[in-house]
Design a protein around this nucleic acid. Structure first.
Lengths: 235, 235
DNA sequence: CGAACTATTGATGCGTTTCAAGACGCGTGG
DNA sequence: CCACGCGTCTTGAAACGCATCAATAGTTCG
């Protein structure tokens, strides 16, 4: 959060209090199942996670991926039954806290609550980008923009990451995120590779021609170009 | 908002202050164009609007529909350039106010700011439902769930509305919302009609078998089953 | 009354899915 | 240490859903 606004010491302390407890998760373990009652929220400290829904016919749609610093489960606390399942994609550490912790934050640090609102909006815009991708772009573009998004989010968490990164997803998971079958994801990856935009070796992907890939994918990075100067000053 | 929590007189006054100014819009007029700089927010008081993006190849994806009581343009104020275009679907009345009005609200009425956060989350969940629909359901299901969503939102604004309502959308607009072509939307509407789930008579749609349509569409109404008891008490 | 948009319907083609089979990698237990 | 099983990746062939193209009828509005 401190990347976007200057936090006061009070605010830093309040945020630290939310991260007092820790829980570790193995790849594949479910943090919250759809239709659980969700009274807890989480901050993801380490690792990658995803949220998905399972439709009536068993098909899975991955809704979003989460990276360190993200707040998890905010949507679940609005409903008696969680609408989504949250699941670990790698070894993860999360910090659970109660709904009431958020409620207190609203009263004692309204500016932080506003920042959470802002992050919700950023996520919402990222969702609209994906919506447009699913509705109106080709399979190749969807796979391409997913690769770019993953790379950028991983890089935001770890400045060391350049054009090459460990994918950490199966092709079936890529398919469930992009609305494609695993088989077709495989073909699209091969095609992107044949066209020189990416390279693959073992679980790693290298982006070889970012400009061409960005153009072919209609990709927009929504974590750039933020303007938060209108928020109240810190106290 | 008063439908979900008990507002204090102070809070009601603060909200009324946001709605002091009025602007009317004709069908088709654009309230904010993508890449405009957006310093204003709006409350939609009357009519229906939509938000969309135009992709590089000219294709349009409608992201969401707006109904009376919705706050518009929240996502635009995060960026120097608005990511989306907002456009009137019918005769509309909107109440514009400055970003700074929201900022003040955060400081003086944190609970209202929290409610705005909550509405953002509801919209976000509605977006994830549509994402799942675009990624993993058939054309017929997408059209069906759009019809159900429109009916429910219109009914929330006007209790008089039963199973029959004025669509107010062209088939091309339905297609741009569901990721289909206008031609295919037409075929799906006819199919739903032939199967007895809906009836159509010039501009109006009647839902004849809501249970079958809901089942065929994987539809979930996200404005039901809210649990907001965790919010701070009003003062 | 004409122009422009909207709805409807048919024929054809393409992109993606489905089905199927084999290769590769990896962990487990004998 | 090897054999086995299971999950993932890869590739081909065929089928299907939706898009595209095209032509006509209906509707709305100046």
């Amino acid at each position: 959060m401190s990347a976007h606004i200057a936090l006061t010491q009070n605010e830093i302390d309040a945020l630290a209090r939310l991260e007092e407890r820790n829980r570790t998760l193995k790849r594949g373990s479910v943090l919250r199942r759809s239709s659980d009652s969700g009274n807890e929220l989480f901050v993801l400290r380490k690792g990658c996670m995803m949220t998905y829904v399972i439709l009536g016919d068993g098909a899975r749609q991955i809704l979003r991926f989460h990276f360190p610093g993200d707040m998890l489960g905010l949507s679940s606390i609005l409903y008696e039954e969680a609408p989504e399942t949250i699941c670990a994609l790698s070894e993860c550490v999360v910090c659970p806290f109660e709904k009431s912790g958020l409620s207190e934050l609203v009263e004692t640090h309204p500016r932080l609550a506003a920042m959470i609102l802002v992050y919700g909006q950023i996520e919402r815009i990222a969702l609209t980008d994906r919506l447009a991708a699913l509705g109106r772009t080709s399979a190749k573009a969807r796979v391409g923009s997913l690769l770019l998004e993953l790379r950028n989010r991983l890089r935001a968490a770890d400045r060391e990451i350049g054009d090459s990164f460990a994918l950490g997803l199966t092709q079936e998971e890529i398919g469930d995120a992009t609305g494609l079958t695993a088989v077709h994801v495989n073909r699209m990856l091969r095609q992107l590779e044949e066209e020189g935009m990416i390279a693959r070796t073992g679980g790693r992907v290298t982006i070889r021609d970012e400009i061409a890939l960005t153009a072919a994918s209609n990709y927009v990075d929504r974590h750039r170009g933020l303007d938060l100067a209108w928020l109240p000053k810190g106290r």
